Amino acid sequence: MSRQPDPSRRSEQSRQAILAAAADLCMEIGYAATTVEAIAARAGVGKQTIYRWWPSKAAVLLEYMRRIRDARLGFADTGDVRADLLAQTTAVQTLFGTNLGAVWRGLLIAAQSDDVAAGDVRAFLEVAVTEAKARLAKAQQAGELRADADLDMTVEIIFGPLYHAWLLRARPLPEAYMKDVLDLVFDGLKPGEGGTAAPQG
């Protein structure tokens, strides 16, 4: 008796093929030149198959990025917040220098003119922001950071320079770029003169 094909398995194989095709095209020819038609041709599926699962190429690429993010470990917690932030931001800087950076750059550019893409990109970023704020809050409670530091603003100050330099391509980023950024930031975040430590106990 022959086994019947598993529709769910075939469906997941098609999804994987579409995600890989979208990412490969974006890396090869850029976000603007990547189209749903081209993705469908590369993946060996019909356009209607893509539109059944995603409303746009941005949505396809965001799912690709989301799967990569979810497969990785979350924000490190070694007990040294400065070291953890350096590890996290250096990993982001490294990603920006890979082909995945081209995918992310395209999505960020699309978000400037596409309200739907903008909402999806914000939701994607919110996961990373929430993880960073949770780690910073723990550092506040441990007395590593000023208790009065605004954590939303702190995240923007830490990650903002990296995004600014990368998106504007203002200058080549040295390997120690984020170490230098954090050295400057932590002069203002550490407890002591100009700030207070979180109460203990």
Rank of each mutant, 00 (worst) to 15 (best):
R42C: 12
R69T: 09
V127H: 06
L62Y: 03
A137L: 00
Y177G: 01
K57Q: 10
L184Y: 10
T89H: 10
W54N: 13
I109R: 15
R9T: 14
R9I: 12
A110T: 06
Y31S: 13
P5K: 15
R122D: 09
P199K: 12
Q93S: 14
D70G: 05
D180W: 08
Y51V: 03
A128M: 09
T34A: 15
L95M: 14
P55N: 08
A59S: 10
G97W: 03
A91Y: 10
Q200C: 03
L184M: 02
A132K: 02
K179F: 14
V129P: 02
V181I: 13
T94Q: 10
I29R: 09
Q141L: 06
V181D: 08
T98N: 05
Q13W: 15
R15Q: 08
A71T: 05
A76K: 03
R9E: 15
A134P: 02
A41Y: 04
A91S: 07
L100A: 08
S14Q: 13
Q16G: 03
A22I: 09
G119V: 03
M153L: 09
E28F: 15
I50Q: 04
I39V: 13
D80M: 00
G44E: 07
T34K: 12
Y177N: 04
T89P: 00
T94M: 07
G97N: 09
L19Y: 15
I18E: 15
S11T: 12
D150A: 02
R52W: 04
R9L: 13
W53I: 08
L189E: 00
Q141A: 08
A197H: 14
R9G: 10
A147S: 05
R122P: 01
P161R: 06
R122C: 01
Q140V: 07
A137F: 00
V60Y: 10
G160Y: 05
G79K: 01
Q88M: 14
K57C: 10
R135K: 08
T154G: 03
Q140S: 11
A132C: 04
G188R: 14
L62G: 01
T35R: 01
R171A: 15
Q93C: 04
A128F: 02
L173Q: 10
L25M: 13
N99G: 11
R52M: 10
K57E: 06
A118C: 07
W104Q: 14
D70Y: 02
G143L: 01
L85G: 01
R42A: 11
R69N: 10
F159G: 07
D180R: 05
K133V: 00
T196D: 11
A134G: 02
P199D: 04
K179A: 15
E12S: 14
A123V: 02
L173H: 08
R122A: 11
A59T: 11
D115H: 03
L61N: 06
A198S: 07
G44C: 12
P174G: 12
D114V: 04
R67W: 03
Q200H: 05
A43D: 11
M65H: 06
D114Q: 07
F124Q: 01
V185T: 05
R105I: 01
E12N: 15
E37M: 08
D70P: 01
